[in-house]
Structures are given as C-alpha cells and as structure tokens.
Write a protein that binds this DNA or RNA. Structure first.
Lengths: 343, 343
DNA sequence: TTGTACGCGTTATCAG
DNA sequence: CTGATAACGCGTACAA
C-alpha cells in the first residue's frame, strides 16, 4: 500500500534504455541525442518522477543544505538574520536547517554534532551566552572540511570566518550622540560581558567619553542582562543615588524599554531630564509613543553576507584556497525622541 | 588534501572484524558481545567516527528531517511557531528546514517540490496570501506518503491535518469585550479576505454583534491589509464621517497600532472616546505606554502541537491507520488599556 | 556471536 | 551516442 517513488530504473525499464542514459538525459548531458532526451523527459513527467536528492548527495558528497545554530529563533534579530541567510542561499539551491541552543553550550555542541552527522555543507553559529570551550570546534575544524561561520556572537578562531557589526562604533556613535545633545553624566547598561559584542559596546562607550573629555565613572557602568525587568530595577537603584545620571546608553533595547517605563513611573521626563538610547533597533522602539533611539544592526543584511561568505568559500574550496574572512558591518544610528533634547 | 570522514569500513579494517559487526556494535544490537562492542566504540571514538546520516537515510527511507514553509520567517508569529516546532521535534531526532514563500503561491509550490526532492519526512505549511490552486497539493498527496500539515493559514483538503486557532471565537470574545465596556458603534478592520483566518475573524465580529442585538452595519467593515499605514489611513477616512464609531476591533495588531497613532494625532482619547483591540498579541502591544488589548494566538504552542500531530501521524503510518486531524486551539484575550473604559 | 552480500537511487568511468 | 558496472556509507537478511 505504500506509495513508491519512481526511480530512473523505472524509466529505463519502460523505455528500454539503460539507467545511465536516463540519468544523462535528465541532467541534460551534451552527448545524448535530442530524441531520447525528449523521450526520457516525457516519460519522467508522465511517471511523476522526482529526483532523489539523498542518493545524489550520497554520491556527490554535497547535500546542498546548511545548518544554523542560534540561541532562540523567535527573536527579531536572529529570525531576521536567518531570513537573510535563506534568501541568499535559496537561489543557489541550498536549504537551511535551524537549531536552537537555548543559550546552553552543551546543547549547542550537540546540535553541532548532529548537523555534522547530517552532512550539511556548512554551519552558521551565533554562540550561546555561556559558550567558552572552543577546543571541540577546533577539533572539528581539523578533522572535517565543513566550513563553520560565526555571526554576531563570535569567538576568534583561526580558520573560522566571522560576520559581525562594529559594536564599538555603534556604541561610540550612540554615546557621542548623547554627549552632543548636552548630556554629561551618562550611564551604561552593559549586558553579558562573556560575549564580545557587549564588551565592545562597553568599550565604545568608554572611548566616546574619553574622546570627549568626560570622566569614566566606574559606578556608571551597570551590569545588567537584557530584560525589561533588569532595566526597571537598574533605574530604581540608580535613583537612590544622590547624584543622578542625565542619560543612559543601554546595550539592549529591552533594558532601555524597562528604563523608560520606570522613568515614567518616577515622573522623570524623557528626553528633557534624561536621555535614553538602546541597541538593536527592535521593532517596538519606533512604535512607542515616545519612540526610543537605537542602533540598528541590519540583521537581514548580516544574514545575506554570511550566506555570501559561505558561497565564496565553497567556490574557493574547489580551487584549493580558503582564507578566513573577518567581515565587520557598520551599524546605523536611529535618533528618535528619547534622546533628542536639542531642537 | 581533502579530509575524509572515517566510515565503518575503516573501523572494520582496523579491528579485523566485518562491517556488519561494526554497524551492529555501534547500534547497540543485542546479539553482540560486550567485548567487541566496547572495542568498536573505543575505536570509533579514537578515529573520530561520525555516522553518515545520509547513507542511513537512503537505506531506511527516513531522513529525520521536516520542512516548513511560511510567508516570511522574521515575524513574531511565524518564528514562534517554528520555535515550538523545533522544540517538539528536536528531542525525537528531527531537523527542521525552513523555507519562505514571500507570500507568493508560485514560490511556495517550488519550495514544496524541492522539499519533496530532499526526501523530508513531513512538510508544514502556512499558505501564502494568494494561494488558491490546491490541485497540485492533492496530486502530491495522491502520489507520495509524505504527510503535509497546514497551520494557521489553511485550506480544507481531505487527508491534510490542520492546526489553527479558533479565530471566530477570538474575534467574538474581542468584540463582546468591547460591547461589555459600553462601546456600541464598533468598526472592524478586516484583513485579507482570501485567507480563512480573516474570514473567520470577520464572522466572529458579526456574530458577536448579532448575539448582543447590535446592528451589523456594512460601512463599519473596513477592508484593510495588515500594515500600520493602512490603519492610519483607515482612521483618517473614518473621521470624515458624520457619525463616528466609538470602537475598533482590528484583525491585525499593526492596523490597530496605526489607528492608535492616528487617534493620538486627532486628539481622540483612548479608551475614553474610542476603544481599540487588535489581534495576534504582538510583543509591542504590551510595551506601549498606552498598551493595546489583543487576542493571543499562542504560536509556540501551535508549533508544538503541529509537531506532535506529525509524530503521531508517523506512528500511525506504520500501523496502517492515518486519519487527518483538525485541531483548533483556543485563543486568549489580553485586556489592556486601549479597551478598558470601565473601572 | 559474527561474516557475506545485497540494496537504497544516483552519478561517473570505462567500454563499445 | 549508449550501455554495463562500480561506488557513495549504511543496515540487514541470510548463512555460518
């Protein structure tokens, strides 16, 4: 009762030709007569033949499939990167398998291995918060040809290409924008310092202060995560101080949002009394009645470029060369109401 | 120079046993001595053996991979469904391939075919806006065993299981909530009527009015898409009327947002002068300073249930039975400021 | 308990 | 231009 797919054997039997001929006809091989070509094509259509990519992959060693591992897929940033990836690779016949690490290094490692077992042609990773051990990745690099590409959340490893945005620059721009708006006592909500992106944002903040002859105050660097709640409680603590800040550059839009909520609660006026700017350009930042300034990471573009790096790498691979690339995209500052004090 | 993966042949050669023994040892076959089992395992680890799922799949006919086709992946709803799908299927060893139809029936059809060629074990689809021809899907159903499952945006086809939410109920609840808040002249922003979900929301709205002895006014059903801009312009047109509505039930959160923006612009007070409620429970609806009421579709749950339907179907398949399921989830009403007039 | 040999569906090589 | 056959890596029926 199980429906069987028709194979080139079925076609060859029906037409009394060899499977080799059928295969060649189907692949439009030059040394095959137009006549039989059409004959085969017609039979294939009639018998509803569908090429079995599995067998082809086993033979050729190419699955035309790539894997991508992200912490969670249902965030604006990661789903947008994956969108870009799919749109870049799909026209070249590649499928995209998605895996979630749930911010867990152990799961991430496991996903990586199952992807390798599935013989994907390439793997894209944005590492989890607590990923630190890179030895097993180096081992994979040494024992396989599968290209691994990091995007956004990366570590520097020889042989691995990376696509990131210039977080330092984004943070620098955001901070300097606040300074230009006349804010002088600027706090930073820092995000998880285990990740390079947040280290870079912190450094961008510090360097912008220095470049503008403002003091770097240790107490103004607040260690937060990336949630609304942490933004709220950070502001609560801040407002117990005698000397209060007049601006906040948050490494996350969500903590920025939490801050805005709490400021409203405290009847502190934005942007008059305090300036706020976030990072990521989450959709909600522009929807708010009091729109929140933010740094855009152009995630769809990042995905497309990651896909392109992979395609180039595949091409280079066949010609023997394969040099890692370190691509850094430039972020865009979106200035909105929450930080616009000057007219 | 190309690094070759080690196969069971390599292990068998090294250990001077047959490939069959290696294969069995690796799969923990009962009738194999503990001794050789450990020997093989050790060698496998040492030689960095990775099972080639491709070959296994070709042999077994199961790829342990499913495909999912959605209009776009980077929307909160679809990426959340896919998250649920991945979390349900991953523990069972399945990978998820994602495809985007870009709201184009032709692309959707093409994606479906390439997924079929890749021999996926199942396909999940939320159809595009302009998908109407179902003949080729019926043909696929007739000629292959691959289960196809629709979620959210569906058509009724014998043999295809569907997972949806009760859009009629969600719309009914939303409308009745507005009525209970004392609103009497309620408009509906309707969304694309080619899709069942929007038809059902419209009908839910109409039935709620009837159930509460309110007149169904044709002019109060506004044909909109799902963008902020359309919400804005719809309100602009509405406010040219002599008799103005006092509430809006929008089939989309984005048109609801547009409406709120325009009302602010017009200095119309929400919820005092006009009540607004949307649909989808997009993250931003709760973030707004004036939070927007909405109907939650529980997308992650929908994805998990879709995955579960697939798993059950696979099980049933081997036992010969396979009856389609039509699952309808119940939506949840989230009442927020934009529609809360009574204390 | 272990080994031999075949098949999954394709493509590629070598003959003719 | 076409045909026979090996090979991709694995699991398994059959045999020992």
């Amino acid at each position: 009762m199980t429906k069987k797919n028709t194979t080139i054997y079925d076609i060859s039997k029906k037409l009394n030709v060899s499977v080799a001929t059928v295969s060649r006809a189907l692949n439009n091989h030059p040394r095959i007569s137009q006549e039989t070509k059409e004959l085969v094509m017609a039979a294939a259509r009639e018998m509803n033949y569908k090429q079995n990519n599995l067998a082809k992959a086993l033979k050729s060693g190419e699955t035309k499939t790539v894997g991508v591992i992200v912490p969670y897929i249902n965030t604006n940033f990661f789903s947008s990167v994956i969108r870009g990836l799919e749109e870049e690779l799909s026209p070249h016949g590649y499928h995209v398998i998605i895996c979630q690490s749930h911010e867990d290094a152990a799961i991430e490692k496991k996903q990586l291995n199952t992807l390798l077992n599935t013989q994907v042609d390439g793997i894209f990773i944005s590492i989890s918060r607590n990923t630190s051990d890179m030895e097993y990745i180096k081992k994979i690099l040494a024992t396989t040809n599968t290209p691994i590409i990091f995007f956004d959340r990366k570590k520097d490893i020889p042989g691995i290409s990376t696509i990131t945005i210039d977080d330092h620059k984004g943070a620098f721009m955001a901070t300097e924008h606040l300074i230009n708006q006349g804010y002088k006592n600027i706090c930073h909500f820092s995000g998880d310092q285990n990740l390079e992106i947040y280290q870079n944002r912190l450094n961008g903040y510090i360097d912008a202060l220095k470049a503008n002859d403002l003091p770097v105050v240790k107490e103004n660097i607040i260690n937060t995560g990336s949630s609304i709640e942490e933004g709220i409680s950070a502001v609560k603590n801040l407002w117990k101080r005698k000397i209060k800040p007049d601006a906040i550059f948050s490494a996350s839009d969500f903590t920025a949002l939490g801050a805005c909520k709490e400021f409203k609660n405290l009847k502190v006026k934005i942007p008059e009394d305090i300036g706020v700017i976030g990072f990521s350009n989450e959709p909600f930042t522009q929807f708010m009645e009091l729109s929140i300034s933010s740094v855009d990471q152009t995630p769809v573009v990042m995905g497309k470029i990651a896909g392109n790096v992979f395609l180039e790498r595949i091409k280079d691979n066949s010609s023997g060369i394969s040099i890692e690339k370190k691509l850094v995209l430039s972020p865009t500052l979106h200035i909105r109401q929450s930080s616009s004090r000057k007219k």
